[in-house]
């Protein structure tokens, strides 16, 4: 299936676009590369903005509405920049029966932030994950990439508040 129009230039001269462009080119600049390209863009920029979605769609020859449909279907993709720090709470079964619900309630009480939200000061984003596979550490959270096991709500809140 040939691409009907010319490849668009990247939205800016930010070097990170190169990574996205290369990823797409390696996969033939064709529609099936859409999800991989979105992964590349999110990894490079932390989230997917309209520029990124348009660029990826135009390069791969995917209609914009379909790009948007895909980007919003998968919960891994985020269209908004996240806070300075992220706290991912695992809500897998093992964590659930070991108190993940209490952790989320504790975060909401102390920091007024619910899953998929960022605190008002833009400091901390709370996300949930469908099982990190760290069931032996239940309940588990990931704070800025570091997995913490057997989490105590008070300690977690204290750590986040100190950030």
């Amino acid at each position: 299936m040939p691409v009907l129009y010319h490849k668009p230039p990247p939205p800016s001269d930010d070097k990170r676009w190169k990574i996205v462009e290369t990823r797409m080119r390696r996969l033939g600049d064709r529609p099936p590369a859409l999800i991989e390209a979105l992964h590349a863009a999110q990894e490079a920029f932390g989230y997917l903005d309209t520029d990124a979605l348009n660029y990826v769609g135009d390069t791969l020859g995917v209609p914009h509405s379909r790009v948007y449909g895909v980007a919003t279907f998968y919960s891994f993709f985020t269209l908004k920049p996240s806070g300075e720090h992220t706290c991912v709470v695992c809500t897998g079964t093992a964590c659930y029966i070991n108190g993940a619900k209490d952790i989320l309630a504790g975060l909401d009480r102390a920091l007024h932030v619910k899953p998929k939200e960022t605190t008002a000061d833009g400091k901390i984003s709370v996300l949930t994950a469908r099982c990190l596979g760290a069931c032996s550490l239940a309940p588990a959270v990931i704070v800025d990439g570091d997995v913490k096991g057997k989490v105590n709500v008070g300690d977690l809140v204290a750590q986040l508040e100190a950030m």
């Binding site: 099936p32 999800i35 992964h39 895909v70 279907f73 998968y74 891994f76």
Partner: peptide
Amino acid sequence: VRLGAGAFVCGEETALIASVEGRRG
């Protein structure tokens, strides 16, 4: 390797195929 992106339903084989093809799962 093709990466999933956080959709449980993609474990279903026809949804998985849709996802490998770069579409909604």
